[in-house]
Design a protein around this nucleic acid. Structure first.
Lengths: 106, 106
DNA sequence: TTGACAGGCAACCAAATAGTTGCATATTTC
DNA sequence: GAAATATGCAACTATTTGGTTGCCTGTCAA
Protein backbone atom coordinates (compact mmCIF):
# COMPACT_ATOMS: atom_id res chain seq x y z
CA UNK A 1 0.00 0.00 0.00
CA UNK A 2 2.43 2.65 -1.14
CA UNK A 3 1.67 6.23 -0.22
CA UNK A 4 3.40 7.34 -3.39
CA UNK A 5 0.72 5.66 -5.51
CA UNK A 6 -1.96 7.52 -3.57
CA UNK A 7 -0.28 10.90 -4.01
CA UNK A 8 0.25 10.21 -7.71
CA UNK A 9 -3.36 9.10 -8.14
CA UNK A 10 -4.63 12.25 -6.47
CA UNK A 11 -2.41 14.47 -8.62
CA UNK A 12 -4.75 14.38 -11.62
CA UNK A 13 -7.86 16.55 -11.69
CA UNK A 14 -9.84 14.03 -13.74
CA UNK A 15 -9.20 11.36 -11.15
CA UNK A 16 -10.18 13.66 -8.30
CA UNK A 17 -13.36 14.39 -10.23
CA UNK A 18 -14.08 10.68 -10.49
CA UNK A 19 -13.61 10.34 -6.74
CA UNK A 20 -15.97 13.27 -6.31
CA UNK A 21 -18.56 11.50 -8.40
CA UNK A 22 -18.20 8.34 -6.41
CA UNK A 23 -18.47 10.37 -3.27
CA UNK A 24 -21.77 11.76 -4.52
CA UNK A 25 -23.06 8.31 -5.39
CA UNK A 26 -21.08 5.22 -4.56
CA UNK A 27 -21.15 1.98 -6.56
CA UNK A 28 -21.46 3.46 -10.04
CA UNK A 29 -20.68 1.44 -13.15
CA UNK A 30 -18.10 2.56 -15.71
CA UNK A 31 -20.76 3.81 -18.12
CA UNK A 32 -22.37 6.00 -15.50
CA UNK A 33 -19.04 7.46 -14.49
CA UNK A 34 -18.34 8.36 -18.11
CA UNK A 35 -21.55 10.33 -18.60
CA UNK A 36 -21.02 14.00 -19.37
CA UNK A 37 -17.22 13.74 -19.36
CA UNK A 38 -15.20 15.01 -22.27
CA UNK A 39 -12.88 12.04 -22.49
CA UNK A 40 -13.36 8.60 -23.95
CA UNK A 41 -14.50 5.57 -22.00
CA UNK A 42 -11.01 4.12 -22.30
CA UNK A 43 -9.47 7.19 -20.72
CA UNK A 44 -11.86 6.85 -17.78
CA UNK A 45 -11.00 3.14 -17.55
CA UNK A 46 -7.32 4.02 -17.24
CA UNK A 47 -7.96 6.61 -14.55
CA UNK A 48 -10.08 4.15 -12.60
CA UNK A 49 -7.34 1.53 -12.91
CA UNK A 50 -4.87 3.98 -11.37
CA UNK A 51 -7.29 4.77 -8.55
CA UNK A 52 -7.78 1.04 -8.04
CA UNK A 53 -4.02 0.52 -8.02
CA UNK A 54 -3.72 3.10 -5.27
CA UNK A 55 -6.45 1.28 -3.38
CA UNK A 56 -8.64 4.36 -3.52
CA UNK A 57 -11.36 2.54 -5.44
CA UNK A 58 -12.61 -1.04 -5.11
CA UNK A 59 -14.63 -2.79 -7.81
CA UNK A 60 -17.21 -5.50 -8.01
CA UNK A 61 -18.81 -7.17 -11.02
CA UNK A 62 -22.59 -7.35 -11.32
CA UNK A 63 -23.40 -9.18 -14.53
CA UNK A 64 -21.81 -7.21 -17.31
CA UNK A 65 -21.47 -4.08 -15.19
CA UNK A 66 -18.39 -3.20 -13.16
CA UNK A 67 -19.36 -1.28 -10.06
CA UNK A 68 -16.91 1.13 -8.42
CA UNK A 69 -16.74 1.90 -4.73
CA UNK A 70 -14.65 4.59 -3.09
CA UNK A 71 -12.25 3.59 -0.32
CA UNK A 72 -11.44 6.54 1.92
CA UNK A 73 -8.87 4.69 4.02
CA UNK A 74 -5.74 5.66 2.04
CA UNK A 75 -6.83 9.29 2.00
CA UNK A 76 -7.29 9.13 5.71
CA UNK A 77 -3.88 7.53 6.12
CA UNK A 78 -2.27 10.39 4.25
CA UNK A 79 -4.16 12.90 6.33
CA UNK A 80 -2.99 11.27 9.54
CA UNK A 81 0.57 10.22 8.78
CA UNK A 82 1.72 12.98 6.47
CA UNK A 83 -0.49 16.03 6.59
CA UNK A 84 -0.87 15.82 10.33
CA UNK A 85 2.87 16.30 10.68
CA UNK A 86 2.80 19.63 8.86
CA UNK A 87 -0.43 20.61 10.53
CA UNK A 88 1.27 20.29 13.90
CA UNK A 89 4.07 22.46 12.60
CA UNK A 90 1.55 25.06 11.59
CA UNK A 91 -0.14 25.02 14.95
CA UNK A 92 3.22 25.40 16.62
CA UNK A 93 3.97 28.38 14.38
CA UNK A 94 0.62 29.95 15.23
CA UNK A 95 1.26 29.35 18.89
CA UNK A 96 4.67 31.02 18.65
CA UNK A 97 3.12 33.96 16.77
CA UNK A 98 0.50 34.32 19.47
CA UNK A 99 3.15 34.35 22.16
CA UNK A 100 5.06 37.06 20.33
CA UNK A 101 1.93 39.16 19.94
CA UNK A 102 1.16 38.85 23.62
CA UNK A 103 4.68 39.79 24.56
CA UNK A 104 4.65 42.85 22.32
CA UNK A 105 1.14 43.99 23.19
CA UNK A 106 1.28 46.06 26.35
CA UNK B 1 -3.82 29.57 -5.35
CA UNK B 2 -4.89 26.52 -7.32
CA UNK B 3 -5.34 23.30 -5.43
CA UNK B 4 -4.28 21.40 -8.53
CA UNK B 5 -0.77 22.84 -8.29
CA UNK B 6 -0.53 21.68 -4.69
CA UNK B 7 -1.65 18.14 -5.53
CA UNK B 8 0.76 18.02 -8.46
CA UNK B 9 3.61 19.34 -6.33
CA UNK B 10 2.96 16.71 -3.68
CA UNK B 11 2.83 13.92 -6.26
CA UNK B 12 6.61 13.61 -6.53
CA UNK B 13 8.56 11.75 -3.88
CA UNK B 14 11.63 13.96 -4.27
CA UNK B 15 9.55 17.05 -3.58
CA UNK B 16 7.93 15.45 -0.54
CA UNK B 17 11.43 14.62 0.65
CA UNK B 18 12.44 18.26 0.27
CA UNK B 19 9.40 19.30 2.30
CA UNK B 20 10.42 16.74 4.90
CA UNK B 21 13.88 18.26 5.07
CA UNK B 22 12.45 21.72 5.46
CA UNK B 23 10.15 20.40 8.12
CA UNK B 24 13.17 19.09 10.00
CA UNK B 25 14.99 22.39 9.70
CA UNK B 26 13.33 25.40 8.16
CA UNK B 27 15.13 28.16 6.23
CA UNK B 28 17.75 26.04 4.50
CA UNK B 29 19.68 27.30 1.49
CA UNK B 30 19.69 25.45 -1.83
CA UNK B 31 23.13 24.00 -1.22
CA UNK B 32 22.12 22.53 2.12
CA UNK B 33 19.00 21.01 0.64
CA UNK B 34 21.08 19.32 -2.05
CA UNK B 35 23.44 17.59 0.37
CA UNK B 36 23.29 13.81 0.20
CA UNK B 37 20.75 13.73 -2.60
CA UNK B 38 21.39 11.74 -5.74
CA UNK B 39 20.24 14.38 -8.19
CA UNK B 40 21.97 17.46 -9.47
CA UNK B 41 21.57 20.88 -7.95
CA UNK B 42 19.58 21.96 -10.98
CA UNK B 43 17.09 19.18 -10.47
CA UNK B 44 16.60 20.31 -6.88
CA UNK B 45 16.19 23.89 -8.09
CA UNK B 46 13.40 22.79 -10.40
CA UNK B 47 11.63 20.88 -7.67
CA UNK B 48 11.86 23.85 -5.34
CA UNK B 49 10.46 26.10 -8.06
CA UNK B 50 7.45 23.81 -8.38
CA UNK B 51 6.97 23.82 -4.61
CA UNK B 52 7.26 27.60 -4.66
CA UNK B 53 4.73 27.79 -7.50
CA UNK B 54 2.29 25.80 -5.41
CA UNK B 55 2.93 28.19 -2.53
CA UNK B 56 4.24 25.35 -0.43
CA UNK B 57 7.63 26.99 -0.05
CA UNK B 58 8.56 30.64 0.35
CA UNK B 59 12.05 31.98 -0.29
CA UNK B 60 14.19 34.81 0.91
CA UNK B 61 17.62 35.96 -0.23
CA UNK B 62 20.40 36.43 2.28
CA UNK B 63 23.44 37.61 0.39
CA UNK B 64 24.23 34.97 -2.19
CA UNK B 65 22.17 32.35 -0.39
CA UNK B 66 18.52 31.63 -1.14
CA UNK B 67 16.76 30.47 1.99
CA UNK B 68 13.70 28.24 1.76
CA UNK B 69 10.81 28.20 4.21
CA UNK B 70 7.95 25.75 4.30
CA UNK B 71 4.41 27.07 4.15
CA UNK B 72 1.94 24.57 5.62
CA UNK B 73 -1.18 26.58 4.72
CA UNK B 74 -1.94 24.96 1.34
CA UNK B 75 -1.51 21.51 2.85
CA UNK B 76 -3.89 22.46 5.58
CA UNK B 77 -6.36 23.81 3.01
CA UNK B 78 -6.33 20.49 1.21
CA UNK B 79 -6.82 18.64 4.45
CA UNK B 80 -9.80 20.78 5.36
CA UNK B 81 -11.57 21.33 2.06
CA UNK B 82 -10.90 18.09 0.27
CA UNK B 83 -9.76 15.32 2.54
CA UNK B 84 -12.23 16.29 5.23
CA UNK B 85 -15.06 15.54 2.83
CA UNK B 86 -13.97 11.94 2.39
CA UNK B 87 -13.11 11.62 6.04
CA UNK B 88 -16.71 12.46 6.90
CA UNK B 89 -17.80 9.77 4.44
CA UNK B 90 -15.60 7.28 6.21
CA UNK B 91 -16.98 8.16 9.60
CA UNK B 92 -20.50 7.81 8.24
CA UNK B 93 -19.63 4.37 6.89
CA UNK B 94 -18.19 3.33 10.24
CA UNK B 95 -21.29 4.59 11.95
CA UNK B 96 -23.51 2.61 9.60
CA UNK B 97 -21.40 -0.50 10.18
CA UNK B 98 -21.73 -0.06 13.91
CA UNK B 99 -25.49 0.24 13.62
CA UNK B 100 -25.66 -2.94 11.59
CA UNK B 101 -23.52 -4.80 14.12
CA UNK B 102 -25.72 -3.65 16.95
CA UNK B 103 -28.88 -4.67 15.11
CA UNK B 104 -27.54 -8.14 14.33
CA UNK B 105 -26.03 -8.79 17.72
CA UNK B 106 -28.80 -10.05 19.96
C1' DT C 1 -29.87 -17.19 -31.44
C1' DT C 2 -29.03 -12.87 -32.71
C1' DG C 3 -28.45 -8.19 -31.65
C1' DA C 4 -27.34 -4.77 -28.46
C1' DC C 5 -25.04 -3.44 -24.47
C1' DA C 6 -20.93 -3.12 -21.04
C1' DG C 7 -16.46 -3.43 -20.72
C1' DG C 8 -11.35 -5.13 -21.77
C1' DC C 9 -7.01 -5.19 -24.47
C1' DA C 10 -3.35 -3.40 -27.39
C1' DA C 11 -1.10 -0.20 -30.26
C1' DC C 12 -0.19 4.23 -31.08
C1' DC C 13 0.53 9.53 -30.34
C1' DA C 14 1.44 14.04 -28.24
C1' DA C 15 2.49 16.57 -24.38
C1' DA C 16 4.33 16.94 -19.85
C1' DT C 17 7.92 15.70 -16.61
C1' DA C 18 12.33 14.72 -14.41
C1' DG C 19 16.61 14.80 -15.26
C1' DT C 20 21.10 16.20 -17.37
C1' DT C 21 25.09 19.42 -18.98
C1' DG C 22 27.28 23.78 -19.94
C1' DC C 23 27.71 28.40 -19.20
C1' DA C 24 26.50 32.97 -17.02
C1' DT C 25 25.81 36.05 -12.92
C1' DA C 26 26.11 37.84 -8.37
C1' DT C 27 28.30 37.81 -3.76
C1' DT C 28 31.84 36.87 -0.54
C1' DT C 29 36.60 36.36 0.92
C1' DC C 30 41.48 36.60 0.48
C1' DG D 1 40.90 42.77 -7.97
C1' DA D 2 40.92 37.64 -8.27
C1' DA D 3 39.41 33.34 -6.76
C1' DA D 4 35.91 30.80 -4.69
C1' DT D 5 31.13 30.20 -3.53
C1' DA D 6 25.98 30.13 -4.41
C1' DT D 7 22.74 30.26 -7.56
C1' DG D 8 20.35 31.13 -12.19
C1' DC D 9 19.35 30.27 -17.10
C1' DA D 10 18.86 27.64 -21.38
C1' DA D 11 19.08 23.76 -24.28
C1' DC D 12 18.66 19.09 -24.78
C1' DT D 13 17.09 14.09 -23.70
C1' DA D 14 14.56 10.17 -22.04
C1' DT D 15 10.63 8.59 -19.73
C1' DT D 16 6.05 8.96 -18.13
C1' DT D 17 1.49 10.30 -18.76
C1' DG D 18 -3.05 11.22 -20.61
C1' DG D 19 -5.35 10.50 -24.36
C1' DT D 20 -7.03 8.32 -28.74
C1' DT D 21 -8.68 4.53 -32.05
C1' DG D 22 -9.82 -0.13 -33.43
C1' DC D 23 -11.09 -4.48 -32.38
C1' DC D 24 -12.24 -8.44 -29.12
C1' DT D 25 -15.01 -10.72 -25.25
C1' DG D 26 -18.71 -11.55 -22.22
C1' DT D 27 -23.67 -10.83 -20.76
C1' DC D 28 -28.46 -9.80 -21.23
C1' DA D 29 -32.85 -9.56 -23.68
C1' DA D 30 -36.09 -9.98 -27.74
Amino acid sequence: MSMDAVFKALADASRRQLLDRLHDRNGQALGELCEGLKMSRQAVTKHLAILEGANLVATQWRGREKLHFINPVPINDIAERWIGKFERGRLAALSALKKNLEREKP
